[in-house]
Amino acid sequence: MAVDRPRRRLTASPAAWLVWGAVALFFVNLAGLIGSVVVSSLGTRWFDSWLPMGYTTRWYSWAWREFGLLDVLVTTLEVSLLVIVISVALGVPASYVLARRSFPGKRALTMVFLLPVLMPPITYGIPLATMLYKVGLAGHTSGVVLANLVPSVPFVILTMTPFIEQIDPTIERAARMCGATTAQVFRGILAPLLLPGILASSILVGVRTVGMFELTFLTAGPDSQTLVVALYYSMSAAGIRAQQSVDAMAVMYTSMMLVLLVVALRFVNPTQLVAQATDDPDR
């Protein structure tokens, strides 16, 4: 470790300059992109000029009233919480068995659990929505929740696997040798040790559900829209509404996601946010 310099010298190679330059360019443009939306959402009129003519916050209150955002937010929260609770309840025990045990047909079952994460949501979303409409579940919160469970349960299984593998199996054996039944092992040993993992995976499922567009879009009715879907409708119906109010809504959505993610980052490594499939074919 002594070889590592405490700080990178400024006399880095041209390749290094190139790489850092590209990163800087990415961030500058990203900042411009976000900034333009924020400025637009706060501006009065903004046409062919560097900055808007004046500033106002009325687009926010307007968007709040016009789009019925309170209801949308309540729906979003309701859907997300239901999806989190159900997918954790279903996913954690399954993940435990898949991580710990080997049994006939395990590979096939793992594949079945992996597929929903690998498939574009549209491919199964359309037939699923058709099916849900047939049985009368689509168009309501229950249909949205059911559709969102499809990627969420496998996602919980995948994110919980490393947490479960971290726990030394001899600890469970030790508990059994102390006389604990399977239920007691789960309650007394596994649940407290897995709590951080369950928390992390719940937050990640929450982030994904709030951001999940396609499945919600396909199954939601007028009163079961989540924030992303409401946003999409407001934007694709552009011309009717002022663009600034859409911008205001988008800023609200992003702030909400940002809060969720900042909370998430306290519990999880950033790579877990994206590592959907912790695949390990050698296992």
Binding site: L33, V37, V228, M235, A250, L261
Partner: peptide
């Protein structure tokens, strides 16, 4: 780097239209 994940499609789209559009800052 995590921020773009929070943007969502619509903010990204609005941003692209605003920022990279013909009269945008870019």
């Amino acid at each position: 780097l995590v921020i773009p994940i929070t943007l969502g499609t619509v903010l990204t789209a609005e941003g692209l239209l605003n920022y990279f559009g013909p009269t945008g800052w870019f």
